[in-house]
Simulated scan of single mutants.
Amino acid sequence: MAPPAQKSPTVLWRVTGITVIALAVLFLTMMLCMSVGEISMPFASIRDVLANHLLGLNIEVEPIDDGIIWNYRLTRAIVAACCGAGLALSGVVLQTLLRNSLADPYLLGISAGASTGAVLVTIAGVGGGLVSMTFGAFIGALTAFALVAALAQAAGGGGLRNSGQIILAGIAGSQLFNALTSLIIAKSGSAEQARGIMFWLLGSLSGVRWPDVPIATLVAIAGLVICMLHARALDAFTFGAESAQALGVPVRRVQGILMVTAALMTAVMVSVVGAIGFVGLVIPHVARMLVGVRHQRLLPASALIGALFLMLADITSRVMIKGQVLPIGVVTALVGAPVFAFILLGRGKAQR
């Protein structure tokens, strides 16, 4: 086998430049996320707070400003970026492996399972107060994923490698867990509990704090690395599993690794912030329009756009209605639905 071609200095400089620009845009959006809100924070205050905590300086800052920036808005910005990146990556993987442009992370019933786990802990009292809502949602998400995989395996063989069966099993699993969630809320919850859990089910970053940051960051970075290591295999899957196998891709192993990675990324993100729709569905399509279908470019572009989109959606959720914070899932749906309709109309015209 011939050795891989070395990248020319021009290509390396181009890649480096794009990476620097992407990181700069990400940093500036994160600064904006910490600045904008019901109480505006000047960039100078943000700079001073970050310098105090990260560099050990002792710049005089108002305690309330320090608390808002460091403990509230910075954590929201980091988790929003990680969640957007993780959901977008999951969408790319599922759409490629299942060869279905409508596939998204919630196709596997993970969001519905997470919702059921959350209401079991917060409303039904499972765990006796020793289990957090986040942990309950995570267990529910993994349970739903396991059930959908088992149903797909029993229905037609192949389990997660059978795209047709996994789509049908995901629909069935989602309906089942959504019904269980509604039943638990109706039977066990008070009006106040129901309002709280319904707000979380629509997607909320209001409860995010520093303990949520390491797990969200680790999962997003690990997911990106795993997907990038399989970028060439994903290119081969674009033409179908048979074509990928003919090109020497170990189809079953790669499908299993990437499907489990997508499921775990979605499970962790949903367990932290609730159900946020349209990110994994729309962002991969937008990224393909901008950088093409090669996954070495598509994966990092999707992660970046997903991170920027969810941070901007978080800002919008805080300023859209004065004195009130909207569920972030409402904002992503208001933006995502028209964008996806526009993409569908554009594809329909192109095919005529």
Rank of each mutant, 00 (worst) to 15 (best):
54 L>A: 09
54 L>P: 01
345 L>T: 14
92 V>F: 01
60 E>T: 13
299 L>A: 08
108 L>D: 00
137 A>N: 02
91 G>F: 04
14 R>F: 11
109 G>T: 08
287 A>K: 00
257 I>K: 06
34 M>K: 05
92 V>G: 01
41 M>Y: 05
9 P>S: 08
171 I>F: 10
273 V>D: 02
101 S>Q: 13
177 F>C: 05
348 G>W: 14
50 L>D: 02
201 L>P: 00
37 G>E: 08
151 L>M: 15
49 V>I: 11
80 A>T: 00
166 I>W: 07
352 R>N: 12
190 S>T: 15
161 R>P: 00
132 S>K: 05
296 Q>S: 15
30 M>Y: 03
10 T>M: 10
121 V>F: 04
100 N>E: 09
67 G>E: 12
270 V>D: 03
229 L>R: 13
20 V>Q: 05
138 F>D: 04
148 V>Q: 10
7 K>H: 13
39 I>P: 00
180 L>T: 10
294 R>V: 13
21 I>F: 14
110 I>C: 02
29 T>W: 00
260 V>W: 10
294 R>A: 15
170 G>L: 04
71 N>R: 12
236 A>W: 04
244 A>S: 10
2 A>L: 12
131 V>A: 03
4 P>G: 06
138 F>C: 07
156 G>C: 05
223 G>V: 07
84 G>V: 04
284 P>F: 09
130 L>H: 13
336 G>L: 01
116 T>H: 08
120 L>N: 00
334 L>S: 10
123 I>Y: 01
45 S>N: 15
291 V>I: 13
269 M>Q: 12
30 M>A: 14
222 A>H: 04
149 A>V: 11
82 C>N: 08
98 L>T: 13
38 E>V: 12
313 A>R: 03
281 L>E: 07
258 L>D: 02
79 V>L: 06
15 V>Y: 11
15 V>H: 13
95 Q>Y: 06
68 I>T: 02
320 M>T: 14
103 A>S: 05
181 T>R: 06
69 I>S: 00
48 D>F: 01
8 S>V: 02
237 F>N: 02
105 P>E: 06
247 L>W: 04
164 G>K: 09
213 V>E: 07
82 C>L: 02
327 P>I: 08
77 A>P: 04
226 I>H: 03
63 P>Q: 06
77 A>G: 06
347 R>W: 11
244 A>Y: 09
23 L>Y: 10
192 E>W: 00
315 I>R: 04
121 V>T: 07
92 V>T: 10
102 L>N: 07
234 L>C: 06
118 A>H: 01
15 V>E: 15
229 L>Y: 06
178 N>R: 09
212 D>K: 09
328 I>D: 01
284 P>V: 10
115 S>P: 03
207 G>N: 15
175 Q>F: 14
159 G>D: 01
235 D>G: 09
95 Q>L: 06
95 Q>I: 06
115 S>F: 02
266 T>A: 14
11 V>D: 13
241 A>E: 14
316 T>Y: 05
191 A>P: 00
16 T>F: 14
345 L>Y: 15
242 E>M: 11
193 Q>W: 09
188 S>M: 13
328 I>L: 08
291 V>W: 05
288 R>W: 04
307 A>S: 15
46 I>D: 00
81 A>F: 08
259 M>Q: 04
71 N>W: 11
81 A>G: 12
133 M>A: 12
56 G>R: 04
90 S>L: 06
